[in-house]
Nucleic acid binder design. Structure first.
Length: 450
RNA sequence: GCCCUGGUAGUAUAGUCCGGUCUAGUAUAGGCGGCUGUCGCCCGCCCGACCCGGGUUCAAAUCCCGGCCAGGGCGCCA
């Protein structure tokens, strides 16, 4: 090739430099597009250079397609561009689709023009192919790169499908989606510690639950649900605790605990079925299987639970809460979903209704999956005088609940509800053992960044 | 708040118990070179690390003390 012709070719190359806008996503590249010219955008995930032929794996939001570069079949300018490419460089590639049995998915693209839209600094802080594993601490520090891994992609697709299924279920069943304030005025409910925030000249708090608001809203909408963040300033540092997590809450007017337990069962069955149907590929990646539960779920009374635990060597006297070791034992005895009902009233929050005629027993329940609590709820107190009595019994000041209590003068119906911890549900659906894995940017006792 | 375990190249590990051929091994990533069908490609060469501070000792990655950081567990947690 003489100087003249090379120069002409360079000019042609420059003239033909394509717009970087994509024509197809990687997963749309199929063998039947053989011979067609396409433009793809994405990131280089892996490079395998065999000398005379080079394979690039181009990743976009849906998947991967192989870019094949046979040295003697493409322009020198392409080779020069390709030789510059590194893992995680951001590129636009225009090229020809080729049906090829030897390629992944039976198809590959041979480039005609490459635009490097941005480069990635090497070496990367972790292996985006996931072949060299990194500790969770390292991965969370470089979370954006970590989320490229197939496992992470699978987890968050399952999380997405879970949320979609939940919303679909609620819509079909007549619930309306609400959003209640996350900045609240007073630390009212007792129990979990709240995070204080500086709110202009006052102190405010991050909400630990939409509980009071959702109860009030049953007057206006009867059936409400909220999927939103909750904040808990607990010093727990375990693989099932976060300081910020997503709570899936419902509240329903003219309903009892048994009614909303039924809603929970149906919802979980629907979610498990949907994830099984829509996330086969993701479950394969995670090497996990979700069993679609049959309903109704087992209902164990608190009394039955403590008897069962006693038979297994764990002594709990009536009225005591169930410690973690005991839950682990219970999880072995009941390996899937089960409710624990008939809790002592003293162990439940003030808004849980004591049973009529037997007030030491409450109408509260917990929904367990193995040894982990994934939901809790119950029939609520809807009588104002009883609610005030319950507040006092729990050493809470009715005065600080004045805005909540006034609503009980406006025709508060009997109602019931529950809350599911979304992350714990996603752990269950993915088989992931550390809750931080199922949150994009987890917050725990010690982690506030990135 | 308490308890346990750990901290070695960008990442993941071996070595630590029982101090000395550790000039710190290996894999992967990264750099350079070679290789035309890879799909955890392969081959050769190279770069790169003992968390910080103090102590013991002739000698410390290794033992001791303190700190920091991380992981896990307990308590706590609607």
């Amino acid at each position: 090739m003489n100087f003249q012709s090379r120069r002409v070719q360079t000019m042609n190359y420059n003239v033909s430099a394509h717009s970087w806008k994509r024509t197809h996503y990687t997963m749309e590249i199929t063998p039947d597009l053989d011979g067609k010219e396409v433009t793809l955008t994405g990131w280089i995930k892996e490079i395998r250079d065999l000398g005379g032929i080079k394979f690039l794996l181009l990743r976009d939001k849906d998947g991967i397609v192989q870019i094949t570069v046979p040295r003697d079949e493409v322009d020198r300018q392409i080779i020069e561009q390709v030789d510059k490419l590194q893992r995680q460089d951001c590129v636009s590639i225009r090229g020809t689709v080729r049906r090829m049995d030897k390629a992944p998915r039976g198809v590959e693209v041979t480039p005609k023009s490459i635009i490097i839209l941005n480069t990635a600094k090497q070496p990367l802080p972790l292996d985006i192919t996931g072949k060299t594993p990194a500790d969770i601490d390292v991965r969370l520090d470089a979370r954006i790169l970590d989320l490229i891994r197939d496992e992470a992609q699978a987890i968050f697709r399952i999380r997405h499908v879970t949320l979609e299924a939940i919303r679909e279920f609620f819509s079909k069943n007549g619930f309306i989606e609400i959003h209640t304030p996350k900045i609240i005025a007073t630390a009212t409910e007792g129990g979990a510690n709240l995070f204080p925030v500086a709110y202009f000249e006052r102190e405010a708090f991050l909400a630990q639950s939409p509980q009071l608001y959702k109860e009030q809203l049953v007057i206006d909408f009867e059936k409400v649900y909220e999927i939103g963040p909750t904040f808990r300033a607990e010093k727990s540092h375990t693989r099932r605790h976060l300081t910020e997590f997503i709570s899936v809450d419902i509240e329903e007017a003219f309903a009892t605990a048994e009614d909303v337990m039924s809603v929970a069962e149906q919802l979980l069955q629907h979610v498990c079925r949907t994830v099984n149907e829509k996330c086969r590929r993701e479950l394969d990646i995670l090497k996990y299987r979700v069993e679609t539960p049959s309903i109704p779920f087992k209902r164990l009374t608190y009394d039955e639970v403590i008897n069962e635990l006693r038979e297994n060597g764990i002594k709990i006297s009536w009225g005591e809460d169930i410690p973690t070791v005991a839950y682990r034992t219970l999880g072995k005895l009941h390996p899937y979903f089960y409710f624990i009902i008939d809790w002592p009233t003293s162990l439940k929050p003030f808004y849980i209704k004591p049973r009529d005629g037997k007030p030491e027993i409450s109408e509260g329940f917990d929904l367990m999956w193995h040894w982990i609590e994934i939901a809790s709820g119950g029939t609520r107190v809807h009588n104002k005088d009883l609610l005030i009595k319950r507040l006092k019994e729990q050493n809470l000041n009715p005065e600080s609940f004045k805005y909540h209590l006034q609503v009980f003068d406006y025709g508060m119906p009997p109602h019931a509800g529950w809350a599911i911890g979304l992350e714990r549900l996603v752990m269950m659906l993915t088989g992931i053992r550390n809750i931080r894995e199922v949150v994009l940017f987890p917050r725990d006792r010690f982690r506030l960044t990135p």
